[in-house]
Simulated scan of single mutants.
Amino acid sequence: MTSATARVRSAALAAGVAGALALTGCSGGDSKDGSSSSPSATTAPTSSTGTPGVTGASAELQGSWITTAGGKIVALVIDGKKAGVFATGGTVCSGTAGTEAGMRMIHLTCTDGSKDRVTGMVDSVDDKAMKVTWSGKLGQETYTRAEGGKLPSGLPTQLKQ
C-alpha cells in the first residue's frame, strides 16, 4: 500500500470515527462521577424559520457514507435522526436526517460556516449507494456505504494535499 493510500484511508477512518463520536454525543473530559465536562458535539440546525418538522430517518439511510469532492474525502454519518458530515480539511457539520413532507431530507449546520451542505434531499438510496442533492452550488453527490469501518472500494488513492 502506498503512503498516499494509507493517508487517504487514515483520513477517512478518522472522519468516520469523529462522526460517530459526534453523533453519539461522546466527548472527552468525563469526570469521576461519569458526567461530562464538555458539551455534546451534536447541535440542531438553526434557521430563521425554525427547525423543520423532521421525523426519524428510514433504516436505509442509517450508517456511514463516503464520497470525494474537491480533492477531499467526505463522510456522511446518519444515526437515528442525527446526521453529520465530516470532510478532510476540517469541515464538521451536524444536524438532522428524516422524512419531511414525504421526502427524505438532511439539514446541517457547519462549524466553519460553510453553506455547501446545509439542506439535502435524498434522491435515491440502496444497500450500496445514496444520492443526495444539496441546495446551492454542490448539487448532487453520490455516496458509497462504508461497512464495518472499512473504506468502500473505488475511492481515488491520491487526493490534493
Rank of each mutant, 00 (worst) to 15 (best):
S58R: 02
T49M: 08
G16D: 01
G98R: 01
G95M: 00
G50L: 07
S153I: 02
C26T: 14
A57F: 03
G149C: 09
W134Q: 02
G136R: 03
S58H: 05
G148V: 06
A57N: 01
Q62Y: 11
V8A: 09
A44H: 10
S40D: 07
D123R: 15
K82N: 06
K81L: 12
T142G: 14
T109A: 14
Q62P: 08
A146V: 05
A129G: 01
V125W: 03
L61V: 10
K72C: 06
T111Q: 14
L13N: 15
G120I: 00
A59Y: 07
E147V: 07
A11G: 13
R145Q: 10
K32S: 14
S27E: 10
S114N: 11
A101K: 11
K32L: 13
K32P: 10
T144D: 08
S58N: 07
E100D: 09
S48F: 13
C93L: 09
S58M: 00
L138V: 15
G29M: 08
V17G: 04
T49K: 13
T68R: 05
S153W: 07
V74I: 12
G89Q: 04
G154S: 13
V17N: 02
S31I: 14
A129Q: 13
T88S: 15
Q140A: 15
R9S: 12
K150E: 13
R7A: 04
G84P: 01
M121N: 12
V54E: 06
R7T: 06
G53N: 15
I106T: 01
A83C: 09
T42K: 12
G19D: 06
G29C: 08
S135R: 13
V54H: 02
R117I: 10
L23D: 05
T99N: 11
G149K: 08
T67G: 09
V132F: 04
T49E: 07
V118P: 00
A59V: 10
V125L: 05
G56M: 06
S37F: 02
G84W: 00
K128W: 08
S94W: 01
V132P: 01
T55Q: 15
K128N: 14
K115V: 13
L138H: 09
G80A: 05
E147Q: 08
P39L: 07
T46L: 08
G19H: 00
G16T: 01
G136F: 03
S27Q: 15
S31W: 14
M130E: 02
K82W: 02
G120H: 00
T24P: 02
L21W: 01
A129V: 11
T49F: 11
I106G: 00
G90Y: 06
T68M: 05
K32C: 08
S38W: 10
G139C: 05
G16S: 08
M103C: 11
